[in-house]
């Protein structure tokens, strides 16, 4: 098992490297660079520009050199100094800009993932065990609908709904007193985890971001469970007097979880997709809106770092799911390969 984990960790290093190249290539695609247009803009407005600082930035990140040189400088900075570049828009290094919103993004993502599995898996099991019952039909219908409604539209509908019911529009992740606390520094992000009003506020974003993924999990769980329930070993277990409940939980569930677990990285990227756009629509203090603004403003290091962090987290998720899978399924543990499906 230890060797297996080691081998998997090693295979992720080249992936991360290729990923960083792809990302950097994409974010430098727009013609021109931010710094030049920024300086030109400032000059046009007649403001004084600190030429020496601009020059040092240019020098440091190789802004006037071909993109792959810029890439190496960027990578070198990340690896040696943990320097992800400079955000021209915020006029400070990228990392603090991201660090403001990253914890909350991870919390929202984890909570959404929890919601995804805690809702999707039990309903999937129920639907499979009670196949063709009224409940199954209802959940199947909801599942299809949930997958068909784009995240952001769902956000709009829910916001519309809360407005109709409560008379106030849902904007932002925090209530006003949390916001004040955060700004004054009396509250840290981890303090929020224990506050009921924070989680009450979180419910809507989590539902919005998580619903389509949950519906996907539900459908795949149902299909897998049906598949497993039809296997011969179920019949065999029944023939030796094992109860239905035990058959479902001991045998089928463990086997059916396999593809669900291996889809963990997919769920994570689904969550990032959803949270990016929903955060923009609902004005949540997550990385999504910052990415959006950075892309619009050609703030390339900020955009690139956000993409890199998302990709890194998903790769991490894949790693975790691989380990979990090896623990769940002895066949993988022995052959060292990932199960199909």
């Amino acid at each position: 098992m230890g060797r297996y984990i080691g081998r998997r960790v090693l295979t992720f290093i080249p992936i991360l490297l290729i990923m960083s190249i792809v990302i950097f290539f994409i974010i430098q695609l727009p013609p021109g660079d931010y710094l030049t247009s920024y300086v030109a803009g400032l000059k046009a407005e007649g403001q004084i520009v600190d030429e020496s600082e601009m020059e040092s930035l240019k020098e440091r990140y190789g802004l006037d050199q071909p993109w792959f040189i810029q890439y190496f400088k960027w990578m070198w900075g990340i690896l040696t100094r943990f320097d992800f570049g400079y955000s021209f828009d915020y006029e400070k290094p990228v990392w603090p800009v991201i660090a403001e919103v990253l914890p909350m993004t991870i919390i929202v993502s984890l909570a959404t993932m929890l919601f995804n599995y805690l809702v999707g898996i039990p309903i999937g099991i129920y639907s499979a065990v009670h196949q063709y019952s009224i409940g199954d039909y209802c959940f199947t219908f909801v599942g299809f609908l949930g997958m068909a409604v784009p995240n952001f539209l769902f956000a709009i509908l829910l916001m519309y709904g809360t407005y109709i019911w409560t008379g106030t529009a849902f904007i932002g992740l925090y209530t006003s007193d949390i916001l004040v606390g955060l700004q004054q520094g009396t509250l840290q992000w981890y303090d929020l985890l224990l506050r009921g009003d924070f989680w009450g506020r979180m419910a809507i974003p989590i539902i919005v971001i998580g619903t389509s993924g949950t519906c996907g999990t539900l459908r795949s769980m149902r299909a897998q469970m049906l598949d497993e329930l039809g296997r011969n070993y179920v019949l065999c277990a029944r023939a030796k007097g094992v109860s239905e409940r035990r058959i479902i939980y001991k045998y089928c569930l463990r086997a059916a979880l396999n593809p669900t677990v291996s889809g963990l990285s997919g769920v994570l990227s689904h969550i990032f997709n959803g949270s990016t756009i929903s955060a923009i629509v609902m004005n949540l203090q997550l990385v999504g809106p910052r990415l959006y603004n950075a892309l619009k403003a050609q703030d390339m290091y900020l955009a690139g770092t956000i993409l890199l962090v998302m990709g890194f987290l998903i790769v991490l998720g894949t790693l975790l799911s691989d380990i979990l899978l090896a623990w769940l399924d002895p066949r993988i543990r022995f052959s060292g390969r990932r199960g199909e499906g």
């Binding site: 992936i15 792809v22 990032f272 993409l307 990709g311 894949t318």
Partner: peptide
Amino acid sequence: NSLPSLPLWMA
């Protein structure tokens, strides 16, 4: 596959 599609599309 490891990159979320929507942010990539946006970029």
